[in-house]
């Protein structure tokens, strides 16, 4: 296969800088490397699924990456916890790989970077090792400030929605304090949890107790508004939106999985705050 790599217009930032150098590198056609390429394509698929992408986007990305390195038929099946790819490569072999995904969260910045990366791969066909490096760089980069931004996110969301749903400024401050407590809770325990429903239940019990405490020490006035503010941090809004988008595009299985999980989390939140109210 001839290679006419062209830098894509849509690549931005650091990716464009190195695009020039990569034109000189020998771009390898699929053949002996097909296994490696498929593995890297699965890496990107997994990374996207972990960052909260829609199923169609993931399947599309994997097919495009494989076909950028060689013709042939690519079959992908993706649900929330599994990716299966089978590729009939140009030299006639059939390669199948699967990937089990255990945990996922939402990180929209990573999603965007992975999207840009896959465009770059399709346009420039870098060697497999380089893809691995870049995916690692995206998934492991921990900006020093990102912690503070996240903390600010917890505080601002809780405080603003406490006011939004009919509280006053003091309720906002109380909800902001609960946001800090929730951030600390997530910071310590989020990485240990396997089951998101049970974890949401525990988080909302903690948040509920914190809300009652802030009202008891007279920081907040209306317990209702403070609690609603902290509910808005926990509520699975993204799950519901993503489930709708998946179902609309024909991925009914994943849509139902996401919807079921979102509903269970919503019930768990209600139960958790209820337990806190009954306990104290």
């Amino acid at each position: 296969m001839e290679t006419t790599a062209q830098p894509s217009e849509q690549n931005t930032g650091k990716i464009t800088e190195t695009a020039e150098q990569n034109l000189n590198k020998a771009t390898e056609p699929a053949g002996q490397n097909a296994d490696k390429i498929l593995e890297r394509a699965l890496d990107i698929g997994e990374a996207m699924l972990r960052s909260g992408a829609e199923i169609l986007r993931i399947e599309d990305t994997i097919i495009r990456i494989c076909n950028a390195y060689g013709d042939g038929i690519v079959d992908v099946f993706t649900i929330l916890s599994l990716i299966i790819v089978s590729w009939k490569t140009p030299d006639g072999r059939s390669i199948t790989q699967t990937r089990r995904i255990y945990s996922y969260s939402t990180d929209l910045e990573r999603l965007e970077e992975l999207n840009a990366l896959s465009r770059y791969i399709c346009a420039n066909r870098p060697p497999a090792d380089e893809i691995e490096e870049r995916v690692n760089a995206i998934m492991c980069d921990e900006d020093k400030n990102s912690k503070y931004f996240k903390l600010a996110g917890y505080v601002l969301t809780a405080a603003a929605f406490a006011v939004f749903f009919g509280g006053n400024i003091r309720d906002g401050i109380a909800a902001g304090l609960v946001g800090i407590i929730l951030y600390a809770w997530d910071f310590v325990f989020a990485s240990h949890s396997k089951n998101r429903v049970v974890y949401s239940l525990m988080s909302s019990i903690v948040a509920g107790i914190a809300c009652i405490f802030t009202v008891n020490v007279h920081i907040g006035v209306n317990i209702d508004s403070v609690m609603i503010g902290s509910i808005m941090i926990l509520i699975p809004g993204i799950g519901i939106v993503n489930s709708l988008r998946d179902m609309m595009r024909g991925d009914i299985i994943t849509g139902i999985l996401r919807l079921a999980e979102a509903l269970m989390i919503a019930v768990a939140i209600a139960v958790g705050f209820g337990i806190a109210l009954v306990l104290i």
């Binding site: 939402t106 929209l108 965007e112 809780a158 405080a159 006011v163």
Partner: peptide, 24 residues
């Protein structure tokens, strides 16, 4: 006005919570 401002700040908080790219 108060509700709109709080919605604005709440949206900002939600963006930070889920790490939306700063320029968006």
């Amino acid at each position: 006005l108060a509700v709109l401002v709080s919605a604005l700040i709440g949206t900002l908080g939600y963006c930070l919570l889920f790490n939306v790219k700063k320029s968006r």
